[in-house]
Write a protein that binds this DNA or RNA. Structure first.
Lengths: 103, 103
DNA sequence: CTCATTTATCGTATATTTACGATATACGAT
DNA sequence: ATCGTATATCGTAAATATACGATAAATGAG
């Protein structure tokens, strides 16, 4: 409904999209876990979280959509890890923007 | 980690809620504007944005909900400004969390 | 007091998000 | 080839978000 005909500054759209990706506690928890463990198969995350397998898969998809994580196929499993380069880049943009405006 | 129904670590809930508050380009633009101008009456923001008065008011309410901005009544007008202390605090928490996990 | 101005809130339509179970797919093992 | 395991995707229900116009409330001006 929104930005197809309302157009906002690209930088703001990008920042908002990143914020949306991390606007759910489960997704923050997933990111934290992936940092702690370096890498997780989907099933480990499902076991850890109070959500169904399909829901966890959906959250992983959202994190993948914005590039914060990447998944690689490992036999019948999917192994997820942080896309460190992309992640650092996004966090940096974010902190630069907000820390600069609050000096 | 959290076994009860849909309850997540409080820190994650708080971070996610902040992220949700800034997960719309208009709300980021409002924050930026309030920083640049120090203070804005509601009408200035409405004039600046491609949205109706009621919609802008709704976005302001969301930013107020998480404490990033505060509004004071000025005659028949509402003057909005960043709640600098709260803002710095939230940004700091956010950057600490994410920068620490990405080292 | 009445009128115009400003803004918050209400009602509502539509889109998106979140959750689940069911199913499809892909792979390894037998 | 068949079976079991792991995961992505589909279909869908319920909740939330986003947008608008209409209206209410508050104030200042005349």
């Amino acid at each position: 409904m929104q930005s197809s005909f309302h157009s906002f500054d690209n930088e703001y759209v990008e920042l908002a999209d990143f914020a949306k990706a991390i606007s759910h506690p489960v997704r923050i928890q997933i990111l934290k876990t992936l940092f702690d463990k370096k890498c997780c198969i989907c099933g480990e995350l499902v076991d850890m979280l109070p959500l169904s397998q399909s829901t966890v898969s959906q959250h992983l998809k959202e994190l993948k959509r914005v590039g914060l994580i990447k998944g690689t196929i490992d036999g019948p499993r999917s192994c997820y890890c942080i896309d460190e380069k992309k992640f650092a880049n996004v966090i940096n943009k974010f902190c630069t923007f907000f820390c600069s405006i609050c000096k």
